[in-house]
Protein backbone atom coordinates (compact mmCIF):
# COMPACT_ATOMS: atom_id res chain seq x y z
CA UNK A 1 0.00 0.00 0.00
CA UNK A 2 2.88 2.32 -0.57
CA UNK A 3 1.53 4.84 -2.98
CA UNK A 4 3.69 7.86 -3.27
CA UNK A 5 2.80 11.36 -4.21
CA UNK A 6 5.63 13.21 -5.89
CA UNK A 7 6.56 16.02 -3.52
CA UNK A 8 6.58 19.58 -4.76
CA UNK A 9 10.34 19.86 -4.44
CA UNK A 10 11.04 16.93 -6.73
CA UNK A 11 10.91 17.05 -10.51
CA UNK A 12 8.22 15.08 -12.37
CA UNK A 13 8.65 11.36 -11.89
CA UNK A 14 9.46 10.71 -15.51
CA UNK A 15 10.58 12.80 -18.43
CA UNK A 16 13.68 14.73 -19.25
CA UNK A 17 15.47 16.75 -16.59
CA UNK A 18 15.29 20.50 -16.82
CA UNK A 19 17.74 22.42 -19.00
CA UNK A 20 19.41 24.02 -16.02
CA UNK A 21 20.27 20.57 -14.73
CA UNK A 22 21.31 19.03 -18.01
CA UNK A 23 24.84 18.23 -16.93
CA UNK A 24 23.80 16.80 -13.60
CA UNK A 25 21.01 14.94 -15.41
CA UNK A 26 23.54 13.35 -17.72
CA UNK A 27 25.65 12.34 -14.82
CA UNK A 28 22.57 10.97 -13.08
CA UNK A 29 21.82 8.80 -16.11
CA UNK A 30 25.31 7.34 -16.04
CA UNK A 31 25.14 6.59 -12.33
CA UNK A 32 21.68 5.05 -12.78
CA UNK A 33 22.99 2.84 -15.58
CA UNK A 34 25.72 1.68 -13.25
CA UNK A 35 23.15 0.92 -10.57
CA UNK A 36 20.90 -1.15 -12.81
CA UNK A 37 23.71 -2.84 -14.70
CA UNK A 38 23.82 -6.08 -12.63
CA UNK A 39 20.04 -6.42 -12.79
CA UNK A 40 19.87 -5.79 -16.52
CA UNK A 41 22.80 -8.16 -17.05
CA UNK A 42 20.98 -10.86 -15.06
CA UNK A 43 17.79 -10.21 -16.96
CA UNK A 44 19.37 -10.38 -20.40
CA UNK A 45 21.61 -13.38 -19.74
CA UNK A 46 19.31 -15.54 -17.61
CA UNK A 47 15.80 -14.52 -18.66
CA UNK A 48 15.71 -12.87 -22.07
CA UNK A 49 18.39 -14.85 -23.87
CA UNK A 50 17.20 -18.27 -22.60
CA UNK A 51 13.63 -17.35 -23.54
CA UNK A 52 14.70 -16.71 -27.12
CA UNK A 53 16.94 -19.76 -27.11
CA UNK A 54 14.07 -21.87 -25.77
CA UNK A 55 11.83 -20.70 -28.57
CA UNK A 56 14.59 -21.54 -31.05
CA UNK A 57 15.23 -24.98 -29.55
CA UNK A 58 11.55 -25.82 -29.79
CA UNK A 59 11.95 -25.66 -33.56
CA UNK A 60 14.79 -28.19 -33.62
CA UNK A 61 15.29 -31.85 -32.82
CA UNK A 62 18.11 -31.10 -30.37
CA UNK A 63 19.07 -34.21 -28.38
CA UNK A 64 22.33 -33.38 -26.55
CA UNK A 65 24.60 -35.80 -28.35
CA UNK A 66 23.26 -36.11 -31.87
CA UNK A 67 23.39 -33.64 -34.74
CA UNK A 68 20.77 -30.95 -34.60
CA UNK A 69 18.59 -29.86 -37.45
CA UNK A 70 15.82 -27.34 -37.86
CA UNK A 71 12.48 -29.08 -37.98
CA UNK A 72 10.09 -26.14 -38.13
CA UNK A 73 6.84 -26.75 -36.33
CA UNK A 74 7.22 -30.53 -36.31
CA UNK A 75 7.54 -30.63 -32.51
CA UNK A 76 4.26 -28.79 -32.14
CA UNK A 77 2.64 -31.10 -34.63
CA UNK A 78 3.92 -34.12 -32.75
CA UNK A 79 2.53 -32.63 -29.57
CA UNK A 80 -0.99 -32.62 -30.98
CA UNK A 81 -0.90 -36.37 -31.37
CA UNK A 82 1.08 -37.12 -28.22
CA UNK A 83 -1.19 -39.00 -25.83
CA UNK A 84 1.27 -38.68 -22.93
CA UNK A 85 1.20 -34.91 -23.37
CA UNK A 86 -2.58 -34.74 -23.30
CA UNK A 87 -2.65 -37.08 -20.36
CA UNK A 88 -0.16 -34.79 -18.59
CA UNK A 89 -2.32 -31.78 -19.36
CA UNK A 90 -5.39 -33.56 -18.05
CA UNK A 91 -3.63 -34.69 -14.89
CA UNK A 92 -2.28 -31.20 -14.30
CA UNK A 93 -5.67 -29.54 -14.79
CA UNK A 94 -7.29 -32.05 -12.42
CA UNK A 95 -4.59 -31.30 -9.89
CA UNK A 96 -5.05 -27.54 -10.27
CA UNK A 97 -8.82 -27.78 -9.91
CA UNK A 98 -8.57 -29.82 -6.71
CA UNK A 99 -5.66 -27.86 -5.26
CA UNK A 100 -7.03 -24.39 -6.01
CA UNK A 101 -10.57 -25.41 -5.09
CA UNK A 102 -9.70 -26.68 -1.60
CA UNK A 103 -7.11 -24.08 -1.01
CA UNK A 104 -9.08 -21.00 -1.99
CA UNK A 105 -12.22 -21.94 -0.08
CA UNK A 106 -10.26 -22.91 3.02
CA UNK A 107 -8.02 -19.85 2.78
CA UNK A 108 -10.98 -17.48 2.59
CA UNK A 109 -12.40 -19.22 5.64
CA UNK A 110 -9.15 -18.99 7.59
CA UNK A 111 -8.62 -15.37 6.57
CA UNK A 112 -12.10 -14.37 7.70
CA UNK A 113 -11.65 -16.27 10.97
CA UNK A 114 -8.35 -14.51 11.61
CA UNK A 115 -9.80 -11.16 10.67
CA UNK A 116 -12.86 -11.50 12.90
CA UNK A 117 -11.19 -13.13 15.86
CA UNK A 118 -7.69 -11.92 16.47
CA UNK A 119 -4.83 -9.66 15.50
CA UNK A 120 -2.28 -12.03 16.99
CA UNK A 121 0.91 -12.23 14.98
CA UNK A 122 1.75 -15.52 16.68
CA UNK A 123 -1.40 -17.19 15.38
CA UNK A 124 -0.82 -15.83 11.88
CA UNK A 125 2.77 -17.07 12.14
CA UNK A 126 1.67 -20.57 13.13
CA UNK A 127 -0.72 -20.73 10.19
CA UNK A 128 2.06 -19.61 7.84
CA UNK A 129 4.67 -22.08 9.09
CA UNK A 130 4.24 -24.89 6.53
CA UNK A 131 4.86 -22.42 3.71
CA UNK A 132 8.39 -21.77 4.93
CA UNK A 133 9.37 -25.41 4.77
CA UNK A 134 10.66 -26.81 1.48
CA UNK A 135 8.26 -28.66 -0.81
CA UNK A 136 10.57 -31.63 -0.58
CA UNK A 137 10.33 -31.74 3.21
CA UNK A 138 6.56 -31.36 3.15
CA UNK A 139 6.26 -34.10 0.55
CA UNK A 140 8.38 -36.52 2.58
CA UNK A 141 6.52 -35.91 5.84
CA UNK A 142 3.17 -36.56 4.24
CA UNK A 143 4.58 -39.50 2.31
CA UNK A 144 5.35 -40.99 5.69
CA UNK A 145 2.09 -40.01 7.40
CA UNK A 146 0.06 -41.34 4.48
CA UNK A 147 2.07 -44.54 4.05
CA UNK A 148 -0.24 -47.39 3.13
CA UNK A 149 1.01 -49.78 5.81
CA UNK A 150 2.18 -47.93 8.89
CA UNK A 151 1.29 -44.30 8.15
CA UNK A 152 -0.59 -42.63 10.97
CA UNK A 153 -3.64 -41.72 8.88
CA UNK A 154 -4.25 -45.29 7.72
CA UNK A 155 -3.78 -46.54 11.27
CA UNK A 156 -6.42 -44.10 12.48
CA UNK A 157 -8.73 -44.95 9.59
CA UNK A 158 -8.46 -48.62 10.46
CA UNK A 159 -10.12 -47.88 13.82
CA UNK A 160 -13.19 -46.97 11.80
CA UNK A 161 -12.84 -50.01 9.62
CA UNK A 162 -11.68 -47.99 6.61
CA UNK A 163 -8.76 -48.77 4.38
CA UNK A 164 -5.91 -49.19 4.18
CA UNK A 165 -5.82 -46.62 1.38
CA UNK A 166 -2.73 -46.43 -0.80
CA UNK A 167 -2.76 -42.66 -1.01
CA UNK A 168 0.30 -42.22 -3.21
CA UNK A 169 0.15 -45.66 -4.79
CA UNK A 170 -3.30 -45.80 -6.37
CA UNK A 171 -4.19 -44.09 -9.61
CA UNK A 172 -7.40 -42.62 -8.23
CA UNK A 173 -5.92 -41.27 -5.00
CA UNK A 174 -2.50 -40.03 -6.07
CA UNK A 175 -3.49 -36.66 -7.55
CA UNK A 176 -6.04 -35.75 -4.88
CA UNK A 177 -3.42 -36.66 -2.28
CA UNK A 178 -0.75 -34.46 -3.83
CA UNK A 179 -3.32 -31.68 -4.20
CA UNK A 180 -4.12 -31.99 -0.50
CA UNK A 181 -0.47 -32.04 0.56
CA UNK A 182 0.22 -28.84 -1.33
CA UNK A 183 -2.95 -27.28 0.02
CA UNK A 184 -1.58 -27.95 3.49
CA UNK A 185 1.64 -26.16 2.60
CA UNK A 186 0.08 -23.14 0.87
CA UNK A 187 -3.07 -22.62 2.93
CA UNK A 188 -1.53 -20.23 5.45
CA UNK A 189 0.23 -18.13 2.82
CA UNK A 190 -2.92 -17.81 0.71
CA UNK A 191 -4.97 -17.02 3.80
CA UNK A 192 -2.55 -14.23 4.79
CA UNK A 193 -2.72 -12.73 1.30
CA UNK A 194 -6.50 -12.68 1.56
CA UNK A 195 -6.22 -11.40 5.12
CA UNK A 196 -4.21 -8.46 3.79
CA UNK A 197 -7.12 -7.76 1.46
CA UNK A 198 -9.65 -7.98 4.28
CA UNK A 199 -7.74 -5.43 6.32
CA UNK A 200 -8.18 -2.95 3.48
CA UNK A 201 -11.99 -3.07 3.71
CA UNK A 202 -13.07 -0.10 5.84
CA UNK A 203 -14.64 -1.21 9.09
CA UNK A 204 -17.38 1.36 8.77
CA UNK A 205 -19.21 -0.95 6.36
CA UNK A 206 -19.42 -3.68 8.95
CA UNK A 207 -20.47 -1.29 11.67
CA UNK A 208 -23.22 0.13 9.50
CA UNK A 209 -24.38 -3.36 8.56
CA UNK A 210 -24.43 -4.35 12.19
CA UNK A 211 -26.60 -1.36 13.08
CA UNK A 212 -28.97 -2.53 10.37
CA UNK A 213 -29.05 -5.93 12.06
CA UNK A 214 -27.12 -7.93 9.43
CA UNK A 215 -25.88 -11.40 10.39
CA UNK A 216 -22.25 -12.50 10.03
CA UNK A 217 -23.15 -14.54 6.97
CA UNK A 218 -24.98 -11.64 5.33
CA UNK A 219 -22.02 -9.37 5.99
CA UNK A 220 -19.71 -11.96 4.44
CA UNK A 221 -21.89 -12.32 1.33
CA UNK A 222 -22.76 -8.66 0.85
CA UNK A 223 -19.66 -6.84 2.02
CA UNK A 224 -16.62 -9.07 2.33
CA UNK A 225 -16.82 -11.10 -0.87
CA UNK A 226 -17.67 -8.27 -3.29
CA UNK A 227 -15.07 -5.93 -1.85
CA UNK A 228 -12.48 -8.67 -1.78
CA UNK A 229 -12.86 -9.42 -5.48
CA UNK A 230 -9.79 -7.56 -6.82
CA UNK A 231 -7.55 -9.11 -4.18
CA UNK A 232 -9.07 -12.52 -4.77
CA UNK A 233 -8.43 -12.18 -8.49
CA UNK A 234 -4.75 -11.51 -7.91
CA UNK A 235 -4.48 -14.32 -5.38
CA UNK A 236 -6.06 -16.70 -7.86
CA UNK A 237 -3.72 -15.66 -10.65
CA UNK A 238 -0.70 -16.18 -8.41
CA UNK A 239 -1.89 -19.51 -7.02
CA UNK A 240 -3.21 -20.97 -10.27
CA UNK A 241 -0.05 -20.11 -12.18
CA UNK A 242 2.03 -21.57 -9.33
CA UNK A 243 -0.15 -24.64 -9.07
CA UNK A 244 0.27 -25.46 -12.77
CA UNK A 245 4.00 -25.79 -12.16
CA UNK A 246 3.73 -28.52 -9.54
CA UNK A 247 6.90 -30.59 -9.66
CA UNK A 248 8.77 -31.08 -6.38
CA UNK A 249 6.05 -33.05 -4.61
CA UNK A 250 5.58 -35.37 -7.57
CA UNK A 251 9.30 -35.85 -8.14
CA UNK A 252 9.91 -36.85 -4.52
CA UNK A 253 6.87 -39.05 -3.92
CA UNK A 254 5.45 -40.76 -7.00
CA UNK A 255 7.88 -39.85 -9.79
CA UNK A 256 4.96 -39.64 -12.20
CA UNK A 257 3.44 -43.00 -11.32
CA UNK A 258 1.45 -45.08 -10.88
CA UNK A 259 1.00 -45.55 -14.63
CA UNK A 260 1.35 -41.85 -15.51
CA UNK A 261 -1.41 -40.95 -13.04
CA UNK A 262 0.73 -38.14 -11.62
CA UNK A 263 2.84 -37.30 -14.65
CA UNK A 264 2.08 -33.59 -14.44
CA UNK A 265 3.21 -31.30 -17.22
CA UNK A 266 6.37 -30.00 -15.58
CA UNK A 267 7.42 -33.52 -14.65
CA UNK A 268 6.79 -34.58 -18.23
CA UNK A 269 9.03 -31.77 -19.51
CA UNK A 270 11.76 -32.74 -17.04
CA UNK A 271 11.42 -36.37 -18.05
CA UNK A 272 11.56 -35.58 -21.77
CA UNK A 273 14.59 -33.33 -21.45
CA UNK A 274 16.76 -35.16 -18.94
CA UNK A 275 15.72 -38.77 -19.05
CA UNK A 276 14.71 -39.25 -22.68
CA UNK A 277 17.12 -36.50 -23.81
CA UNK A 278 14.49 -35.19 -26.20
CA UNK A 279 15.44 -31.59 -25.58
CA UNK A 280 13.89 -29.94 -28.61
CA UNK A 281 10.53 -31.50 -27.96
CA UNK A 282 10.74 -30.71 -24.24
CA UNK A 283 11.34 -27.07 -25.19
CA UNK A 284 8.23 -27.09 -27.36
CA UNK A 285 6.16 -28.41 -24.46
CA UNK A 286 7.55 -25.70 -22.19
CA UNK A 287 6.64 -23.05 -24.76
CA UNK A 288 3.10 -24.42 -24.74
CA UNK A 289 3.08 -24.27 -20.94
CA UNK A 290 4.16 -20.63 -21.08
CA UNK A 291 1.39 -19.80 -23.54
CA UNK A 292 -1.23 -21.66 -21.53
CA UNK A 293 -0.24 -19.87 -18.33
CA UNK A 294 -0.22 -16.45 -19.99
CA UNK A 295 -3.69 -17.04 -21.41
CA UNK A 296 -5.00 -18.24 -18.04
CA UNK A 297 -3.57 -15.24 -16.22
CA UNK A 298 -4.97 -12.83 -18.80
CA UNK A 299 -8.43 -14.40 -18.85
CA UNK A 300 -8.63 -14.53 -15.08
CA UNK A 301 -7.69 -10.89 -14.68
CA UNK A 302 -10.22 -9.91 -17.33
CA UNK A 303 -13.05 -12.04 -15.97
CA UNK A 304 -12.57 -10.90 -12.43
CA UNK A 305 -11.99 -7.25 -13.36
CA UNK A 306 -8.97 -7.27 -11.09
CA UNK A 307 -8.03 -3.67 -11.60
CA UNK A 308 -11.41 -2.20 -10.80
CA UNK A 309 -12.23 -1.93 -7.17
CA UNK A 310 -15.74 -1.38 -5.84
CA UNK A 311 -14.08 0.45 -2.99
CA UNK A 312 -14.31 4.05 -4.00
Amino acid sequence: MTTTAVPATGAPASGAPGIARRTSGNRETWVALGFIFPTVFGFVVFYLWPSLRGLGLSLTDYRFFADTSFVGLANYQRLLGDETFWNAMGVTVWYVVLNIGFQTVLAIGVAVLLHRLTRSVVIRGLVLMPYLVANVVVALVWFWMLDAQIGILNQVLSWFGIGPISFFGSEAWAIPTIAFVNTWRHLGYTALLIFAGLVMIPRIFYEAAKIDGASEWQMFRRITLPLLRPVLALVLVITVVGSFQVFDTVAVTTAGGPADATRVIQYYIFDLAFQRLDYGYASAVSVVLLVVLSVIAFVQLRLMRANESDLS
Binding site: A32, L57, V241, Q245, Y279
Partner: peptide, 30 residues
Protein backbone atom coordinates in the same frame (compact mmCIF):
# COMPACT_ATOMS: atom_id res chain seq x y z
CA UNK B 1 15.68 10.19 -13.34
CA UNK B 2 16.92 8.65 -16.54
CA UNK B 3 15.46 8.00 -19.96
CA UNK B 4 13.60 4.71 -20.40
CA UNK B 5 13.33 4.06 -16.69
CA UNK B 6 9.67 3.05 -16.55
CA UNK B 7 9.91 0.85 -19.63
CA UNK B 8 12.89 -1.05 -18.25
CA UNK B 9 11.10 -1.53 -14.95
CA UNK B 10 8.00 -2.86 -16.68
CA UNK B 11 10.00 -5.33 -18.75
CA UNK B 12 11.72 -6.66 -15.64
CA UNK B 13 8.37 -7.10 -13.91
CA UNK B 14 7.20 -9.31 -16.78
CA UNK B 15 9.95 -11.74 -15.83
CA UNK B 16 7.96 -12.42 -12.66
CA UNK B 17 5.27 -14.10 -14.71
CA UNK B 18 7.46 -16.42 -16.80
CA UNK B 19 7.34 -20.00 -15.50
CA UNK B 20 10.86 -20.89 -14.32
CA UNK B 21 11.07 -24.11 -16.32
CA UNK B 22 10.78 -22.13 -19.54
CA UNK B 23 14.07 -20.36 -18.91
CA UNK B 24 15.70 -23.20 -17.01
CA UNK B 25 15.95 -25.66 -19.88
CA UNK B 26 18.07 -23.23 -21.95
CA UNK B 27 19.91 -22.06 -18.83
CA UNK B 28 20.97 -25.64 -18.26
CA UNK B 29 22.55 -25.65 -21.74
CA UNK B 30 24.27 -22.36 -20.94
Amino acid sequence: RWPGRDTVFFVILIALMVPPIFTQLPNFLL
